[in-house]
Design a protein around this nucleic acid. Sequence first.
DNA 1: CTACATACACAAAACGTTTTATACAAGCGT
DNA 2: ACGCTTGTATAAAACGTTTTGTGTATGTAG
Lengths: 343, 343
Amino acid sequence: MSDYRSVTIKDVAARAGVSITAVSHALNEKGTLSDETRQRIREIATAMGYQADALARGLRRSRIGVIGIVLRPLDALEDYSPPGIDYFLRFAGAAAVSALGKGLSLMHVADLVRGPVTPLAFSLDGYIVTDPVRDDPVVALLERRSIPYVTLGRDLSKPEATNWVASADADAARQGLRHLEEQGARSIAFVGGTDDNSWNADGETAYREWCEQHGVRQRMFRLPEGLGEQGGHDLVPNLLNGGVPDAIYSLTGRHAAGIQAGMRERGLLAPDDYLLACGTDADQTRTADPPITAIDLRPEILARETVDLLAGITRGEDPAGRRMVQSRLIVRRSSDRGIAPGA
Amino acid sequence: MSDYRSVTIKDVAARAGVSITAVSHALNEKGTLSDETRQRIREIATAMGYQADALARGLRRSRIGVIGIVLRPLDALEDYSPPGIDYFLRFAGAAAVSALGKGLSLMHVADLVRGPVTPLAFSLDGYIVTDPVRDDPVVALLERRSIPYVTLGRDLSKPEATNWVASADADAARQGLRHLEEQGARSIAFVGGTDDNSWNADGETAYREWCEQHGVRQRMFRLPEGLGEQGGHDLVPNLLNGGVPDAIYSLTGRHAAGIQAGMRERGLLAPDDYLLACGTDADQTRTADPPITAIDLRPEILARETVDLLAGITRGEDPAGRRMVQSRLIVRRSSDRGIAPGA
DNA sequence: CTACATACACAAAACGTTTTATACAAGCGT
DNA sequence: ACGCTTGTATAAAACGTTTTGTGTATGTAG
């Protein structure tokens, strides 16, 4: 490690024979400099490879070109890198890429509200908060600090808020339920999560409506997200309590995989003995045997919209919020009896 | 957005009736303060919720608690979020999680050497560079700036370097080749990439050795990583040039999927007409039909080791480098003729 | 009583910027 | 010759820390 000294504004000023104020103004289109000197300073600066130190700059202004991302559902999990969270990783990866495309960098930040937090956390330009729960403490903290943020998924405790992007959750669930119906399901059991977020809420609503419209008794279950496949597996006895349902719609991928495993232990195989579909595509739904029908929430598109919205807000613009992204049903064997849609 | 003013060192000093120097010393275990005042200041600081501003601190010291990650193979791609890069996203996600566990944050940084770079880029504590190529300009830049870094995969141009973590690439390839052999392959064609990195180099070496040991003629192909599935597909005529090989071992997942598709168009199906295995597990290998045998490089473990090594280095320690992570063969239908290993 | 440590606290400089306020010409109208 | 713009450039303050050096009691040895 040599002792490299990077070139500062002072160096540029010295070389150009002007004050550092002149350099700053020349490079930031501020102040009153003749076009001539402005131009000259710029050339010298680039020739010397000058790049303003972001820390020093951030100290005065307050934008450092970095946005943070908080993955709430992962905060909650004890183990921080369980399998089957690839939706979040895909989202985070895609968000990073989108941010880079806008000249921003994305920084992962751990739970802001417990334990010591990364030093830079409160100096970031803005935040993406995925799937906040009702009265989310992280959201509250950001508000208190007046740090701009965008949530992925609506914040149920803030119906007036516009700073969110979400998949069209209710639509997605309806789409899944309609598909099961088309493949022959008359009664459908529903397995949601326990996190108090819009994703679960909208899924439940869609299910309730479907049941009412079809005059079918609701069979709704709520299973903590953290229980994962094991939880799905252990839920099976309850699911079978009132007889084998025609179909099961599970919101989370890990639950669905566990349910399928548990059903198989009882000799019940999809798609012959029941139909199975799932609200999020995940590693588990793809690799299960048989592969499980799932909804691709299109994390890449969600990420792009989220970053775009946040970037606009941090720049002080007033971009349109409340953005919804249409998701897409991926039919796989677990629910495919070969009946054409609309038949 | 209210005008929240966060509590500064000055506020704490005022409240405690001491100088800001005293506060700084008290909180950083520096200087000469009586234990009594030290303690009193600490209590007041925590009571007021004081947290040192990372930017201001970074200006003086030079550690801000953030490490950067550069995904070189993605830098090279024109499209920045193609499918089938989930190995990198998994790695990045896992690295973020590992970093958080060490009180560091992970920041995605785009190609450092072309175009304007994120402002904070040169103020980060250190970097992870995945799969650097020979004489990688990003690596050169980091060295010039004397920013510590760790590479994922050896840097072929720096045989003496110890600052790397890698999967046991050669072992992995040997493992794959042995598996194909056990399933009945006598001649194996090999498809590598063109990036000049240790991953490709070690894979090729393992293949050459295997051919020599078995007295089989080499059938080695090099296909640019960027061509993806299409590239694999288009390579098939060349692959078939000297007759249908018993088996094909492809280093990258996208190539493998394309090859399988191309072979099918010619009526050749795995595992009956040929065996197919692949050096990296990817979305494409899992979801291909039939699913393709692949090597799980265990990005989560790689990420943990990489972050651990880098964290040690940035703290000025001298942690053991050159860490190798054993990978794991996942046998899928594309190469499975049901012959037990070792038979 | 003097000289000299020792213990404690603080003032001021420094980090590299941006921003605000000021200075100095030159030109112009009176 | 005077005051007033206008155009150009700079000095100095500010951002919130850390670090360096200085100062003042207090105690101790001679």
